[in-house]
Design a binder for these strands. Structure first.
Lengths: 237, 237
DNA sequence: TGTGGTGAGATCGTATATCATTTCGTACAC
DNA sequence: GTGTACGAAATGATATACGATCTCACCACA
């Protein structure tokens, strides 16, 4: 056994982590051309492991690939944020509801503490910190989801959001305060062991409201014809 | 330009299609060891494109990969069917509801025709044909879903199901008749332009009921403590 | 001045070769 | 008889090499 038993990350994994991190922290912006040889030499490896890493990222939707042309960071499309948030609303909503029964009192306390920090951040507003804490908060809510597929999809959704600069809350400053309040409401639902569907839709609508706020903010004009929110208890024929 | 302008599928793509097809038609069963060199020589290519194909399939969840050990077809775990159906219930349910407003009268007629064929299949029961028609039916329902991410996830969910032998309806013969009736109900909801949430939960519960039937059938004893179904209109505090 | 061809450079696609790791059989010791 | 250790074979991981394809700038010609 070598001197470093924990070490030995594969070159392929190294390249994967490297590129993914750069996409998520916006070193590589959407549309950025990913040249295999350049990345390979930057990491001191050959192109083969880099190609494999790119393939994985392609399958995850973080990069787009074209034959004989190359790879580039995905999501130049402005609708990308829209569809990603929409997908995440559905998937994360369910994950949150499914995770709730397994949350301990300690988890709840932890979530409340994070939400308190979020509230504090509102004073001296720091979009980056807010976004990070926001993920921490929601992670506590869905982390016990017993379905690993769903959990994986939630992770990928958040990864895509991180890759989008627009996901930062800085673009919709007024939204942050509402968001903290909605978090509190969701925590109340969990604590009172509310109906699963009600919780699912609370979590779903929380995200859709954020999306609507973003769209309204971007278009400068409030679009009331964008009824993304849904209500599970609305009357049925 | 060469003589065959449409030809020239990359070796990597070739390997991807090859392995994926074999997984889905159960030539490669769950747990099957995917030896890179063997696949490469079978296709007459080198191992490099095969590795890339395996990486993509890994990211899609069809194969599992372990460093320095190799790849094998995923889902040896019996819970895999459970979680996949659960995921699909959520995602396909939403996709169906989101697709409904874009369905034309012709689409509806097509769906009804397929469901009629499904009903016919019940006479001289053919599990393979039923499973194929079942996918055709649901494809018509969700194909207009405007969110490409969700659509992609639905496709992947069905791909995983195809990879599972147990997904064939043959294991729950009694379920098929109910299934056809539920299809008809869903079509009625679409035709009457029912509420999106109601439709979403009808589609979701349709799948969860199939899952419950499978679980009950497999365990020989009906498990009433498996309340997978949810009702959007149930009373909330 | 605009348009189309052409060639060089950049980059991708794949094969071959070599090194590293794992696995498995066999033999030896207790 | 059982367990362990050693080694060979199989397989995966990566590097290098070369051919294929694309991009783009430049130049000839209308």
């Amino acid at each position: 056994m070598a001197l470093s038993p924990v070490a030995a990350p594969s070159k392929s994994q190294l390249a994967y982590d490297f590129v993914k991190a750069r996409i998520e922290n916006s070193s590589y912006t959407p549309g950025y051309r990913l040249v295999l040889g350049a990345i390979a030499s930057e990491l001191g490896v050959s192109v083969v492991p880099v190609r494999e890493a790119i393939r994985r990222l392609e399958a995850e939707g973080l990069v787009q690939f074209e034959r004989n042309v190359g790879a580039q960071v995905a999501m130049a499309d402005p609708r990308e944020y829209h569809v990603t948030m929409q997908s995440l609303s559905v998937i994360e909503g369910w994950a949150t509801a499914a995770s709730a029964p397994f949350m301990t009192a300690d988890d709840l306390a932890r979530a409340r503490a994070i939400n308190d920090q979020l509230a504090e951040t509102l004073q001296h507003f720091d979009p980056v910190a807010f976004t990070r804490l926001n993920l921490d908060f929601h992670s506590v809510l869905f982390e016990h989801c017993p379905n690993p597929h769903i959990l994986d999809l939630v992770d990928r959704g958040w990864a895509r959001l991180r890759a989008l600069r627009e996901s930062t809350f800085s673009f919709v400053p007024g939204r942050a305060r509402e968001s903290v309040a909605e978090h509190a409401h969701i925590l109340d639902l969990i604590e009172s062991k509310a109906d699963a569907v009600e919780l699912e839709f609370a979590a779903r609508n929380h995200r859709l409201t954020t999306l609507d706020a973003f769209l309204a903010h971007e278009n400068a004009r409030p679009r009331t014809e964008h009824p993304n929110q849904l209500h599970p208890s609305q009357e049925t024929p």
